[in-house]
C-alpha cells in the first residue's frame, strides 16, 4: 500500500526528516511514537502532500506509484486521508459542508446524518467547522470526516490525545470502523498510520508494527506494545542509547 523510501523533507528550507524508510502493507496498521518536535506530523503531512512540506529526496510510493509530484487533492482522490492534530477553523463552512465534501459525488442528507450519528456529532453539524469545538469534538470531527471520505490509507495524527476515558472508547470504535477491524485479518485492505503519545489507542486497534522517531529519523522498529512499555518505563533516552 505505502512505501516510504529514503525520504528527506524540508519545511521552509529547514530539513526536518532525514532519510526515512518504511512500508505498510494493505490491511496493516502501524503506529508512530516519538517525542514532541521529532517530526511525526511532518512525516504525515509529507505523505498527504501539504505544499509547505518539500520532499527534497526519496520517494513516496502509494499503490505502486510515486505520488511525490501529486497535489493534495489528487492524493485524497487516490485514497489517502488524514486527520489533523490541529485543524483550522473555517468560518462560514459548516461541519456538514465538510462531510459533504468528504463524501464527494453522491452525497446525500441521509448519508451525512448516518455518519454524524456514528460519531455523535449531530449537534455540531451546523456549526462552523472547528469553531469553538472542544478538544474531544475536534478529534471526533476529524475521524467523522475520514469515515465519510473512506480512504484506503488513513493517517491519524494523535487521534486520542486530550480525549477523556469515555470518549476514547468511541474514538477507538471509529478508528476500527475506519480500518475495517470487523473484517478477518486476511480480508482487510485498509491501512493506517497512527501517531500516538499515550498508546491508549493500542487497546483498540490491532497495530502490527511500531516506530520510534527521533530528530527526524526512524530509529527503531518493532512490536508496538514493547516499544510503548520501553518508552513508558525508560523514556526516549533509552531509545537514544539504543541508537548508539
Amino acid at each position: 500500500m505505502l512505501e516510504i523510501e529514503q525520504l528527506t523533507v524540508a519545511v521552509d528550507d529547514k530539513e526536518i526528516l532525514h532519510d526515512v524508510s518504511f512500508s505498510i502493507k494493505a490491511g496493516e496498521t502501524h503506529v508512530l511514537f516519538g517525542p514532541n518536535g521529532s517530526g511525526k506530523t511532518t512525516l504525515l503531512m509529507a505523505i498527504m502532500g501539504a505544499p509547505r512540506y518539500h520532499v527534497t529526496r526519496g520517494g513516496i510510493i502509494f499503490k505502486g506509484k510515486d505520488i511525490v509530484g501529486l497535489s493534495m487533492d489528487e492524493r485524497a482522490r487516490r485514497g489517502i486521508g488524514m486527520s489533523l492534530q490541529r485543524p483550522p477553523v473555517v468560518r462560514g463552512v459548516t461541519t456538514r459542508d465538510m462531510v459533504a465534501a468528504c463524501i464527494g459525488e453522491g452525497t446525500s442528507e441521509e448519508a451525512i446524518a448516518r455518519i454524524a450519528e456514528k460519531a455523535h456529532m449531530g449537534d455540531l453539524m451546523d456549526r462552523d467547522i472547528n469553531y469553538g469545538f472542544s478538544g474531544g469534538e475536534i478529534k471526533r470531527s476529524e475521524l467523522m470526516q475520514l469515515l465519510a471520505q473512506e480512504p484506503d490509507l488513513a493517517l491519524l495524527d494523535e487521534p486520542e490525545s486530550g480525549v477523556d476515558l469515555v470518549n476514547i472508547a468511541l474514538i477507538g470504535e471509529l478508528i476500527n470502523e475506519l480500518l475495517q477491524k470487523e473484517h478477518p485479518i486476511r480480508d482487510r485492505r485498509l491501512s493506517g498510520l497512527i501517531i500516538t503519545h499515550t498508546g491508549h489507542i493500542l487497546d483498540y486497534v490491532n497495530a502490527r508494527t511500531g516506530y520510534v522517531m527521533l530528530d527526524g529519523r526512524i530509529i527503531c522498529e518493532g512490536d508496538p506494545h514493547e516499544i510503548l512499555e520501553t518508552i513508558k518505563n525508560k523514556d526516549y533516552e533509552e531509545c537514544r542509547r539504543c541508537l548508539k
Binding site: M48, A50, P51, S71, M72, D73, A76, R77, G81, M82, L84, P87, P88, V90, R91, G92, V93, T94, D97, M98, A101, C102, G104, D128, Q145, Q149
Partner: peptide, 21 residues
C-alpha cells in the same frame, strides 16, 4: 489546504470558502 485534503480542488475549496463567507 484543509478542504483540499478532503478531496476538493483548489478552485472548489476557494469557492466553498467564499460561499461560506
Amino acid at each position: 489546504e484543509y478542504l483540499m485534503m478532503r478531496g476538493l480542488t483548489r478552485d472548489e475549496a476557494t469557492a466553498t470558502i467564499v460561499r461560506g463567507f
